[in-house]
Structure formats: C-alpha cells, structure tokens
Design a protein around this nucleic acid. Structure first.
Lengths: 215, 215
DNA sequence: TGCTCCTGACCGACCGGTCAGATAGTATTG
DNA sequence: CAATACTATCTGACCGGTCGGTCAGGAGCA
C-alpha cells in the first residue's frame, strides 16, 4: 500500500506546518493557504487530506498530545527515583524559550477551542488524563519510598500539572521571556519539589539549583 | 458635563455586552454586530466609542482585571488571618459554574491575545502584577505569624496563582463542569493550604473540608 | 484509458471599518 | 413661544478585503 504511507507522510507535513503557523498567528488567524505555503504545497492539498480546517487542527492537537505523552513517559522512565523523575519532566517541558513559546502559544489557543467546541474538549480531556496518569505514577512512587508527603495521589498529580500550566501562562506574558526563561524553569522545579517533598526528607533544595542544566 | 457621564455609561454597556459575547464565542468569532445587538444598539455605535475592535477588547480586559483586583482586595481585606484570606480568595474566584465558565473562557482567550500582541500582553502583565501583590500580602502575613512555611514570598505568591489558573484550565475541559465544580473549589482550597501551611501548624486539613461552603 | 494526486481560480459568506445622513436634544434668535 | 440653527449621538447601507470550501481540470503513472 504505497498510498497509505504517502498519505501519512503528507498529513504529517501539513500538521507540522499548521503547528508552526498556529504558534505564530493563532488558530483564527491562520489560513489554509498559510499552512499550504509553509508546507510547500498548494492550498487544495490541505482539504484533500483533511475534511475541514477544524478537522486538520483537531488532528494536529491529537498528534501533539500523543507525542508529548510519549516523550514524557520516556523521560520519566529513563530517570531514577521520584525526584529525578520530576526533574526530567521539568527539563522536558522547558526545553528552550523558542520551543516553549511555540508550544504554549499553541496550547493556549487549543484551550480556548477546547473550552468551546466539544470536539476539541475531548482531545483536551485525553491530554489531561494522560498527564495525570504519568504524574500520578511519579507521585505514588515518591510516596511509596517515603520521599513525598503522603496524600491523595490523583489530586497531587493534578496540582502538579496545574503548577506547570499556571507558571507557563505567567511566563507567556513576561516582557522578556527569553531573559527569564531559566529562572522560570528553576523556579518550577523548586516549587514542585517543595510542594511534593516530605518535610525533613529534604533532598537539599540547593542541590536543585546546582543540577540546573545550561541551555 | 452630561456627555462625559453618558459616554462612560455607553462604554460600560458595550464592555459588558462584549464580555458576554467573548465568553461564549471567543474573540475572533465575535463580531462588532454581535456586540451591538447584545448591547441593544446599532453596529456603528461600537466604533463610535472605540477606535477599533482591538481597542474595545483591550479596554474590556483592562476593566475586567481592574474590577477583579478590587474585588480580590476587598475580599482579602475583609477576612481575618492568612488562612481565612486564602479561603476568601478561593470563594471569590469560584463563584459559580456559569460565572466561572464565562470568566475563564474569556480569560483563556485573553491569554491567547496576550501571548501574541504586545498591547494585550501589557494588560496581562498588569493583571499578574496586581495578583502577585495581593497574594504576596497574604503569604507574608502567614509567614510573619508562623502559620505558613517561611520561603520566598514573591515566588510562593506566583505559585499560588499558578495553581488557581492551572486548575481552571483543567476544569474547563471537564466533561461536566457543573457536576465537579464544588469538588474543584474544595480541592483548590485544600491544595493551596497544603502548599502554604507550615507542617505541624496544621490548621487541621479536615477543618478545610468542614468549612467548605455550599452553593 | 483510468487512476491518484495535485493545482489554483472561483464562489459565497462574512466582517471590520467608513460614512452620508437621520434623529433628537439644546441653544439662539426674533 | 415658535422658528431656526447647531451639535452630539446614532444608524445601517456599503466597501474592500479575506477566507473556508468547491471543483474543473492538469500532471504523472500504470
């Protein structure tokens, strides 16, 4: 089946083009033509492989969350111990200013859609379900080992994710996001660990800063 | 000056109409005509009192954040002690499912604009600055009294706000937001206090649930 | 010849913004 | 008091431009 592979390829190219466009302009300001040009094809192709603009973007966001779920699982799986897993998550979610801006601009746009269109809402629900599962895994391990304070794991996972998202919203409105990117990442790590760690078990807050990665 | 008062009145009516429309449809899908109809005037009036659609919405968001700042300050000022102040904040931010949905839909839309247009970004910056100031006041009082764990107050305030926003994003993608609204509010209160309270000083986590208000 | 894939002109709908004029309230004049 | 002039406010038809979606046909291949 040559065509199936070709179709998958085509859709992928369109998704990537759509992602870059939506990150820059926002869903409503992106035209099918913008996407086509960015993908190096003609406008007609966009609606040859997708039923509508909504369809294309629904597919895009679906693909985006799947890929981020996979990357989170990989990063968490590769790290040893709950504290390191949290750090791995932070490192993954804060890769670089430009990638962050692109992703979270698209993300905010997506939230606006999810808050109003059932179809997008379902994708958002899946996103949070996946995150909660990953986050809960970390939280439960931390509790089991006595490193994290013992509490409702699902709720804790939810709050953990809220801190990520909430800090990102704040970062997006900073005057000079590039300048304070590292500060936000380190702060995020510090705050998450402060929130999670059982008192006394201090895995030395300073160690957090020491291990902070350069970019 | 009759006209000055009249103008202020008119602009207010338009703002309110715009708010209800943007909460339902989202910035890009609201037309000036929608706003005019909702306000009970003709389309021309919108651009008689505002220079452009962007101008109208910038004004709307400015007005919105000012009024929320005022209400937060009032609520916090009327409450006794840091824990009660946090609770007052939660009660204010979670008034009812319908108000929440309206406000946070508009809010998410606004974040999308703030992330892309300098003019809106500045309004967002002012919003967070005001929040941080209010939040820090509470945090510092809690620390001074030994109720909250001693840490960087600004950072703590920032995380506190992140938890609000992050949980709201999750709530917006819930299948049945009305059904879990109370659960989210109580959870928000519980998680905030867990995050803030110094260990041992337990203002009894159970007391939090006991005091939860019915709606 | 027939098929898949692709192109871009085209269509109809929509929308922000403009503007010529209607309307109504107030001041001025006789 | 009535007639007139002036002004602030309001109206909605209209314009120019845009965009999602359609489609007739072209290109390349079997």
């Amino acid at each position: 089946m040559r065509s199936a592979h070709h179709e998958a390829e085509r859709r992928l190219v369109l998704r990537k083009a759509a992602f870059r466009e939506v990150a820059e302009r926002g869903f409503s300001n992106v035209t099918l033509e913008d996407i086509a040009v960015r993908a190096g094809v003609s406008k007609g192709v966009t609606l040859y492989y997708f039923d509508s603009k909504d369809d294309l973007f629904c597919d895009l966001f679906s693909w985006l969350i799947d890929s981020i779920h996979v990357r989170m699982r990989d990063a968490v799986g590769a790290a040893e111990g709950p504290v390191e897993k949290v750090r791995a998550l932070v490192a993954l979610i804060f890769p670089s200013p430009s990638k962050n801006r692109a992703f979270f601009r698209a993300y905010v746009d997506f939230c606006g859609l999810a808050a109003r269109k059932e179809r997008f809402r379902q994708v958002g629900e899946r996103f949070y379900a996946g995150c909660r599962e990953i986050d809960r895994g970390i939280v439960e391990e931390g509790m089991r080992r006595g490193v994290f304070l013992l509490r409702d794991a699902g709720e804790t996972a939810s709050t953990l994710r809220a801190i990520f998202d909430g800090l990102m919203l704040q970062w997006l409105t900073e005057k000079e996001p590039e300048a304070c990117f590292d500060a936000y990442r380190e702060r995020c790590e510090r705050e998450l660990l402060h929130y999670l760690l059982a008192p006394g078990k201090s895995s030395a807050p300073e160690a957090v800063r020491t291990k902070a990665r350069r970019r």
